[in-house]
Amino acid sequence: MTALGAMTALGTALRVEVLAWRRSTVQRVATPLLVLLVPLAAVGLTALARSGAVDGAGAPKLAAYATGDPATTHLGVAGQVLAVAALMAGGFAAAAVFGQPLADGRAGAYFGLATPRGTVALARGLVVLAWTAACVLVAIGLTVALSAAVTAAASGSFGSTAWAAAGRALGAGVLAAGLAVPFAAVATATRSPLATVGALIGVVALTQLVVLVGGGSWFPYAVPSLWTGTGGPAAAAGVGGGALALTAAVAPAGAALVVAQWRRLTDV
């Protein structure tokens, strides 16, 4: 296939996959959850931490949100939530769009098409990635708007540190979205959406262990969270450009893997 033919096929597959994803139940449920819960959690948790109403086991966890510029805290919390939520949302989406057709046999219908299976898989992965990244962007936009409204009501200001936190939250969310791409390969290998969700949960648990033993700053699945300050300012400062680049490389590597899997797919 020529380069022009490949681009045409990708364009065709993207048109079909965008429509399919727009209509999917998973997308319809996950989108409002992701874009509404994040700003509400960011502003709500900050307000709760500063209210003094929380004591017991939850108090130390919220202590970091109890001081400092409120708007910067809002965006910092949003980044921390998105660092996990974007991975989970993207992972669930990958489980649904790659695992379900293989589980119910619909993937067999992609054989013998003028649009190659690998191209369909690439388009599907790009749509999931773009959707997750778009949700991250909208969630941060809503958080900025809500935070600006809340701080203005309290006679505060939405300053440069808050914008910097918004930028980092956006970066962390998009990185986390990219970390979900390899779960398309997991879904293809296991041919099971549930097994993929299990693997996703397993990776999140593994990340906790890696961070606990101090190896998180170079572990891609820990990098977005650490970078947004989940492990404290020192851990955030320990995340360098190399770790961020390594984390960003996970998405294209995962995409290349799933495209190769779909090209070689058999026994469907």
């Binding site: 399919a20 209509r23 999917s24 139940t25 119910d104 046999g105 619909r106 067999g108 219908a109 992609y110 098409l113």
Partner: peptide, 8 residues
Amino acid sequence: GAPLVDPA
């Protein structure tokens, strides 16, 4: 088997 049909 299953056709090229998206139920959604």
